[in-house]
Nucleic acid binder design. Structure first.
Length: 867
RNA sequence: GGGCGCGUAGCUCAGCGGUAGAGCACUCGCCUUACAAGCGAGAAGUCGCAGGUUCGAAACCUGCCGCGCCCA
């Protein structure tokens, strides 16, 4: 494949008849890497272009969502690289605290051990061992997809440098008073045994029960969590609720416990919900906690960290879900259950990692005060320093950052960045920076680790060397574009914005946030294991190739919209790659080349395709700037398939066969057009384009080739008009042939008149429409009249199918009549003529003229038919 | 309950004030020496419904209906 194509027209084919991705992909990828194509040079004088990869989870493997996101990023980076930017796409992974710890604990479980058997240090060592052996499978899969990432700069959130960044950030926030420790109600996972942040909780509408319990003669409360009554410390009513006004300040006896609890008045009680009286369990409900704070109520923690009841008595030792029916049964026995609604559908929070029902739990945790950080994060978008694309998505962003709660960052895990705070023997608290010695004897370090998102929030600058002032950081920060899904706009993006602006003295972490949608199946359904509609990108890559997989994903990528994919579309993408392969194959077989400048003497066909190419370059550039990947693919697909393959190549065949200088010129133009087309497509389908580009050039790689430059001098309106006219004539003849049932191979004698501008191309028309010259015995059995005054007389050597011909003409006439009627109606409307812009009126007049000419032409043809 | 988005050809989606488009699927005819993973031709839509704005609405406004997502 690397041999230089011969310039002779009789060169032998250099490519097999079908494109086989497996023969190309790994070979090409290895070549790119070993040639250092992806390695960014910090010392070059090119303008920088930086993207950091949204770090995939170290436990994960490549799913369609990754493949999609990576395809878009790769396309952006590859194009910028070709445009002469110093392009850096920085890869890496995050340590996924809960997921990874769960995974290794499960592994230990199969050996009959728990992490506690190993102890903290040995367990963490074991996790590292796991990572070394089987973590990061996704990195190899990214190579298969063709990701042009700079592997020399790969980072991991738990590596030394990033850990240093985490500690530095924590200390900085701590010293600025933006990190604090407090007893709060947090989301607790009784299975993972750790706190979760709000965003790690997923809500779903679940079937539960709503039980109304009589607390006294006058007070009935409704609850979905009857067991928590064991921890009630008050009943609350609205201060204006006439039903209960007289009870405020009194006490009731809490059933089953014998405890007496007060009735308090609180504005936040909704008098319309249930009976208007609510039970208050400050240690197990965030709203109740607030009520407890306002009324100085005690908090009774009535279950342990595993969700097991700890209140002494008959329920002690029961799991929360066993305790619920037990408590209800006990209350019923006392006649205290006045109503039960079952099933009762209500929103329930689940741990995003293990789906266990989250337990609101009162505990001592570390928090980030997000107030000032979130304000800055919002302002950076409001004042235009950071652009969200598509812009509509800004609304979602503001909705989140402008209402952000403080962020619980401590996790009761062992795998992660340990909180750098030490507690002294006399209750002292000291935050230790990265270059400070931990305090000595008698001090103990906090046992918790930080939320994984804390380290991910530093990603755009920690990966470049922060907190050191590295050359990379100076050169590649702020990053150019963040490509990510709208679903984590508030998860991750908002965190990076807060941290980036704060740590980098107000410099935003990225200039543009390009949001994409979710990958869905061909019916727009979310891919899920339980639904059985998950498609594995690795499977597609095996069967259709990485390029086909990428093209399918990019072709569906409308900004911010979800992307449906299906195997059929991937097949279509594979077909497209094969089409390119064969077009290049044809070109090489016919001596197309890329040597020397374009000839000055060019045929109309050559000038036409070059002109079309310029429009395509222009459009592609404009669409790339707007992240319109679907439209980029569409434009290039149609140019490649319709213009280049279906028309230019077909028009070239007779030229090449005729030989001479025109053939020479066409060989050069064909080589040029393919060269440019392959460059334009390379960002999206890197493998096949590189293989073909090398076949065309004999050397190098398209990955280092220059991005096509717009050359307005090549735009040629006259050539375009001529070829379009030619296409109309050819298509009209083909249509006639098809309607008449003439076989494609059957040549038909014809005489062409009134060709006008296309007269010089009559021989091309004859070639494409398979027409023979009119001989001495020529007698037209049918005459076609094509728009533009072209008349085609055809000798079909026999009776023509009059009915078919009439039907065709009637159809054309109906269309022309409709068109004419519409135009006349408009022009007859004084308001239209008076108010519509001049150019619109002119256009309608032209359309009417065309339609009337068509009617006359078709009418005459019909008349001739019946004669 | 609050917010956001979407209803256009059989399917999936573009179009977002001036002649309704694409891919796939479909119909007909073809192994025409680059490609049957292909070639040529074709059929297919009162643009969810109802009002309004406008010379002109698939597009802008209002309401309704039906889906989806996020937040509480």
């Amino acid at each position: 494949m690397t041999q230089t194509p011969e310039t002779s027209a009789i060169s032998t084919p250099t490519l097999p008849a079908q494109y086989t991705p497996a023969d190309v992909e790994s070979r090409r990828y290895e070549a790119w890497v070993s040639d250092g194509v992806f390695t960014a040079d910090v010392a070059s004088d090119k303008p920088p272009f930086t993207i950091v990869i949204p770090p995939p989870n170290v436990t994960g493997s490549l799913h369609m969502g990754h493949a999609f996101e990576h395809t878009l990023m790769d396309a952006l980076v590859r194009r910028r690289r070709m445009q002469g930017y110093e392009a850096l796409w920085l890869p890496g992974m995050d340590h996924a605290g809960i997921a990874t710890q769960n995974l290794v604990e499960r592994q230990l479980g199969t050996e009959g051990k728990s992490r506690h058997d190993l102890g903290r240090e040995a367990f963490v060592e074991r996790v590292w061992q796991w990572k070394a052996e089987s973590g990061g499978a996704i990195l190899g899969q990214m190579r298969r997809l063709g990701d042009s990432v700079d592997w020399s700069r790969e980072r991991f959130t738990m590596d030394e440098g990033l850990s240093r960044a985490v500690q530095t950030m924590f200390k900085k926030l701590f010293d600025d008073g933006l990190i604090y420790r407090a007893n709060r109600i947090i989301n607790w996972c009784p299975r993972c045994l750790t706190a979760l942040s709000d965003i790690e909780v997923v809500h779903s509408d679940d079937e539960g029960e709503l039980v109304s319990i009589r607390y006294s003669d006058e007070i009935v409360v409704a609850t979905t969590r009857a067991e928590t009554m064991l921890g009630d410390t008050a009943v609350a009513v609205h201060p204006d609720d006439e039903r209960y006004k007289h009870l405020i300040g009194t006490e009731v006896e809490l059933p089953l416990t014998g405890r007496r609890i007060p009735v308090v008045a609180d504005e936040h009680v909704d008098p319309a919900f249930g009976t208007g009286a609510v039970k208050v369990t400050p240690a197990h409900d965030p709203n109740d906690f607030e009520i407890g704070q306002r009324h100085d109520l005690p908090s009774i923690t009535m279950m342990d960290e595993r969700g097991v009841i700890t209140v002494p008595g008959p329920f002690e030792g029961l799991d929360r879900f066993e305790a619920r029916p037990a408590v209800v049964a006990a209350l019923r026995e006392q006649g205290r259950i006045v109503a039960e609604k079952r099933p009762y559908v209500h929103a329930v929070g689940h741990c995003s990692r293990c789906r266990t029902t989250v337990e609101p739990r009162l505990s001592l945790q570390w928090f980030v005060n997000t107030g000032p950080l979130a304000k800055a994060a919002g302002d950076a978008v409001r004042d235009g320093r950071v652009r969200i694309d598509p812009e509509d998505m800004s609304k979602r962003y503001f909705a989140w950052v402008d209402n952000m709660h403080d962020w619980c960052i401590s996790r009761q895990l062992w795998w992660g960045h340990r909180i750098p705070v030490w507690y002294g023997p006399d209750g002292e608290v000291r935050c230790v920076g990265p270059d400070e010695e931990p305090p000595g004897e008698g001090w103990e370090q906090d046992t918790d680790v930080l939320d994984t998102w804390f380290s991910s929030g530093l990603w755009p600058f920690s990966t470049l060397g922060w907190p050191e002032r590295t050359p990379d950081l100076a050169r590649f920060y702020p990053t150019s574009v963040l490509v990510t899904g709208y679903d984590i706009l508030f998860f991750w993006v908002a965190r990076m914005m807060m941290f980036g602006l704060y740590a980098m003295d107000g410099k935003q972490p990225f200039d543009v946030i390009a949001l994409h949608g979710m990958v869905r199946d061909e019916h727009g359904k979310k891919m899920s294991k339980s639904f059985g509609n998950v498609v594995d990108p690795l499977d597609w890559m095996d069967r259709f190739g990485a390029d086909a997989t990428r093209f399918t994903l990019a072709r569906g990528a409308n900004p911010g919209q979800d992307v449906p994919v299906s195997e059929e579309w991937c097949q279509g993408s594979r077909n497209f790659c094969n089409k390119l392969w064969n077009a290049t194959r044809f070109a090489l077989m016919n001596g197309a080349h890329v040597d020397g400048p374009l000839p000055t003497e060019l045929s109309t066909t050559d000038r036409w395709i070059l002109s079309r190419l310029e429009h395509v370059i222009d459009e592609a550039d404009e669409l790339f700037e707007r992240f319109e990947f679907a439209k980029i693919c569409d434009v290039l697909y149609h140019f490649a398939w319709d213009d280049v393959c279906d028309w230019y190549v077909e028009l070239s065949k007779p030229v090449l066969a005729a030989g001479g200088p025109a053939a020479e010129a066409t060989r050069r133009v064909l080589g040029h057009v393919l060269d440019q087309l392959l460059r334009l497509l390379h960002p999206v389908i890197p493998f096949v384009t590189d293989e073909l580009w090398i076949a065309l050039h004999g050397t190098g790689t398209v990955a280092r080739a220059a991005w096509p430059q717009l050359d307005k001098a090549l735009v040629d309106d006259a050539a375009e008009a001529e070829i379009e006219a030619l296409q109309r004539v050819v298509t009209e003849i083909r249509r006639f042939r098809s309607d008449q049932g003439l076989r494609p191979a059957q040549r038909v004698a014809a005489r062409l008149d009134g060709l006008g501008v296309v007269a010089p191309h009559e021989w091309l028309i004859r070639s494409l429409a398979r027409l023979d010259d009119a001989g001495a015995e020529f007698a037209a059995s049918a005459t076609l009249s094509v728009a533009g005054g072209v008349r085609v007389g055809l000798d079909t050597r026999g009776a023509i199918d009059v009915a078919a011909e009439r039907a065709r003409l009637e159809k054309d006439r109906a269309a022309a009549e409709k068109e004419a009627a519409q135009c006349r109606a408009k022009l007859g409307n004084e308001a239209f003529v008076g108010k519509a812009p001049e150019h619109v009126v002119t256009k309608i007049k032209e359309r009417l003229a065309t339609a009337e000419a068509d009617l006359a032409r078709i009418g005459a043809a019909l008349e001739a038919l019946s004669a």
